[in-house]
Simulated assay, not measured.
Amino acid sequence: MKPLKEFTIPFVGLKIAKHQFEYKVNKTFFEYFEYEDFNDVNIKVDLVLEKKSTLLELHFKISGTVNVNCDVTNEPFNQSVENEFDLVVKFGEEYNDEYIDILIVPHGTYEINVQQYIYELTVLGVPTKRVHPGVEDGTLKSDILEKLEELSPKLKENKEKEEDIDPRWNTLKKLLTDK
């Protein structure tokens, strides 16, 4: 996969100090990764790169919304997303990304691409269970919710059925539990 140029930071010409980068991420960014769970995306990425003499420190902060479908009703809604991540980039003999928050790049590397980190931060910032806020507070009116309510088991009916059982069966049930 060819990296997107706008997310490549050439750090070799930067002074030893903190540097600010801002990115706007939309749906085409996720289409590049072939990720199709989002209907629409409006994410702002604030990246602070602190260049030091022997390493780089990157602090990612994302905030915004992604439009996803509700897991209960399949209704689209805007899910707010906020996430932060710190990454340390060190220089070594060969490329190594085995560690979560440490990236080792070969000596002589002059740029770093941050698109994969932005992608992962956004996807991991979205809750695994996506429930429309209208479902939680009861304001959403949907055919699916009405059908779920209609088909849900009624607790009172189950208790009445248990009371109608012949009491002789209860002594037989005791035999099963006395083992």
Rank of each mutant, 00 (worst) to 15 (best):
V66Y: 06
G92L: 13
T54Y: 13
T54C: 08
E84P: 03
G108R: 00
F77R: 13
E34S: 13
S80G: 07
Y23A: 07
K27C: 02
V81Q: 03
V72E: 08
L14G: 08
I16T: 13
I43H: 05
P76S: 09
D97V: 07
N39S: 10
K18R: 14
E120L: 05
E93T: 07
V72P: 03
F60R: 04
F11C: 01
N42Y: 04
E111F: 05
K44W: 09
I62R: 10
F29W: 05
C70R: 05
D46C: 06
L58M: 15
G108T: 00
S80H: 09
F85W: 10
E57M: 15
I16H: 07
V72M: 06
I62F: 11
I62K: 07
Q79W: 08
N83A: 10
N96G: 11
F33A: 06
E31L: 12
N96S: 13
I104C: 00
T73H: 03
D101Y: 05
I118A: 08
V72C: 11
K15I: 02
H59G: 12
E75M: 10
H107R: 01
N74W: 04
Y95D: 01
L49G: 12
V105G: 00
P106H: 03
F38N: 06
K61G: 13
N69E: 07
N69C: 03
V105W: 04
K27Y: 04
H59E: 15
K61C: 10
I62C: 11
E84F: 03
Y119H: 12
E98D: 15
Q79N: 12
K44C: 05
L14N: 06
Y95Q: 02
Y117A: 07
E120D: 15
L49H: 08
G92H: 10
E75C: 09
Y32K: 11
A17G: 03
F29S: 07
V12E: 10
F30M: 09
L87A: 06
V41Y: 05
F11K: 01
F11Y: 11
G13S: 08
T109H: 00
P10G: 09
L56T: 00
F11L: 02
K61N: 15
L47H: 08
A17E: 14
Y110H: 05
K27G: 03
F60N: 04
Y35G: 06
D40K: 13
N42T: 11
V48Y: 09
E120S: 10
F29N: 02
A17W: 04
Y32W: 12
D46L: 14
L47D: 04
V123W: 12
N113I: 03
E57K: 15
I104N: 00
N39A: 11
K44Q: 12
K52A: 15
V12K: 09
F29K: 05
S80T: 13
K27M: 04
I102C: 02
H107V: 00
D101I: 04
V72I: 15
T65W: 02
V123S: 10
V48K: 13
F33V: 08
I16G: 01
E82G: 05
Q115Y: 04
F21P: 02
L55K: 15
